[in-house]
Design a protein around this nucleic acid. Structure first.
Lengths: 98, 98
DNA sequence: AATGCTTACGGGTCACGTAATGATT
DNA sequence: AATCATTACGTGACCCGTAAGCATT
């Protein structure tokens, strides 16, 4: 897989905050770490996702598109983990393992 | 994020092949590397996904559930990357960046 | 001068490959 | 004995935090 969920998570944070500093504290990493991961995501996809002027951050068109899908994917990933846990806990003691 | 797309990719390979060796070559890693990542995925979720007898591999109930969702998530991740690229390439030269 | 993103750099963690071990047929 | 998964272990890569650099207001 070329991209990772962590990168999507970081990107969504920046895209929603439109501010690397706030986004960084939101996902509990430092600004350079977040900046680097977003840069790598752009490199992996091969598409600029953000327009950085020294004081402001804006989304590109493709960036807006990715944001929508990234939110969905992250939500589904979190949901399917929870669902899997529930399937396990709700079935403890029966023959669910086979 | 607790889980990663790579782990889901490895898990799907094992779940579909029901054989660590074939799954490993399919995702182009060695068997121990794949085994370790699947183990970590199970640990992260806190749910056994596979039943390993020394000669056979079977899915647990929660494992089957996760497999369905993991396939979907991986497909969506791949699709949204392609879509983002298309959005970029299809808009080269116009004002799509703003 | 202050704010805010990036670049530089060193370190610790982690993913991976090779080799060895264990278990079942 | 052969097959197949796990465990052990060393190494390279990568993510991250600290520090410095650079641009804009």
């Amino acid at each position: 897989m070329v991209i990772e969920l962590r990168q999507l998570e970081y990107f969504v944070a920046v895209a929603e905050e439109l501010h690397f500093g706030r986004a960084a504290s939101r996902v509990h990493v430092t600004q350079p770490a977040l900046s680097e991961q977003v840069r790598q995501l752009e490199e992996s996809i091969g598409v600029p996702l953000l327009i950085r002027t020294t004081r402001t951050v804006r989304l590109t068109g493709p960036g807006r598109l990715l944001l929508t899908h990234a939110r969905l994917i992250l939500a589904q990933a979190a949901a399917c983990v929870q669902l899997t846990r529930l399937a396990f806990e709700g079935k403890l003691g029966d023959d669910s393992v086979e």
